[in-house]
Amino acid sequence: MTLDVVVETLIKAVIVIGALLTGFAYLTLFERKVQARMQQRPGPNRVGPWGLLQPAADGLKLFFKSSSAPSSRDRFLYLLAPMISIMAALASFAIIPISGPGALNLFGHSIGWYVMNVNIGVLWYFAVTSVGVYGIFLAGYASNSKYSMLGALRSSAQMISYEMALGLSLVPVFILAGSVRMVDIVNAQHTWWFVLPLLPAFFLYLIAGIAETNRAPFDLPEAETELVAGYHTEYSGLRFALFFMAEYINMIIVSSVATIVFLGGWWGPFGILPGPWWFLVKVVALLYVYVWLRATLPRMRYDRLMALSWKSLFPLSLAMMMVTAVVVVAAQGTL
């Protein structure tokens, strides 16, 4: 590991974090605007042109907000929890290649379109998200409030359960691509996106991904009407913003992974747009689906949610995996 690689990675990390934070900010606005349009109203439009400065105002306000916290909290863990959440969220983006196939040549260096190209690929993503559970759980535990605790218990149970389905739904892709590296997977989709042969797996992944990020209709951990605000009930100001940020960044990441794994990453038909734009378009489309679902569907009940994971998604993804394996082996003619 030479110095210039370190410097390059650091620079890329800074860029990615900056982009993610901006993305988070505008994702909130995007969500509010898109939802508003579906409800026949304009949405935020006063702060800046078309409300474009709304995220800035929100951020500014939250940043300068004093914090109010329960006196019976566990002080150390209360501080630690949002940091774990946001770090896990930011770290998972490191493996996402946003364009390719060649590297970017800049100042005589060839720079990949990713922070790092680890050879365990998607496993990195699973590893990091599984650490993210602690952020949510500790938030609930440290707040020492029943609503937070219930929200945290629900949330972590939900995330752990759906991680199984999430992981298994990607296995068919690994079988087809023959690799777990993101770049290899995308390159394998040069002609056909995997969403075509693996449509059921795509839907399984999407459902599991929405549940994994605790979004509607699976937003039970923070189901406002039951648990006030779930695990972050007792958080305020900037620390609350960190949870908010983590949630939205996780949405971006789930969409990015789906784009890479199923929707052909930076490959677009006819080559009209450069790679990063295709990537962006697909991610935004998936985020639109997120918002759309939230605007439409009722929330599921908690026990049904767990049942859906263990009784439907999990067996279905196993079956999908087996079917894919059999088909691939049969096609290779080695059966």
Partner: peptide
């Protein structure tokens, strides 16, 4: 041992220890 790295985090930190933490909190 990158695979072991992932397995260690996913299985141990992500599942087994969450179970511990769960039980302790409950």
């Amino acid at each position: 041992a990158q695979f072991l790295f992932a397995a260690q985090i996913i299985v141990y930190a992500g599942a087994v220890m969450v179970l511990f933490v769960f039980i302790i909190a409950l």
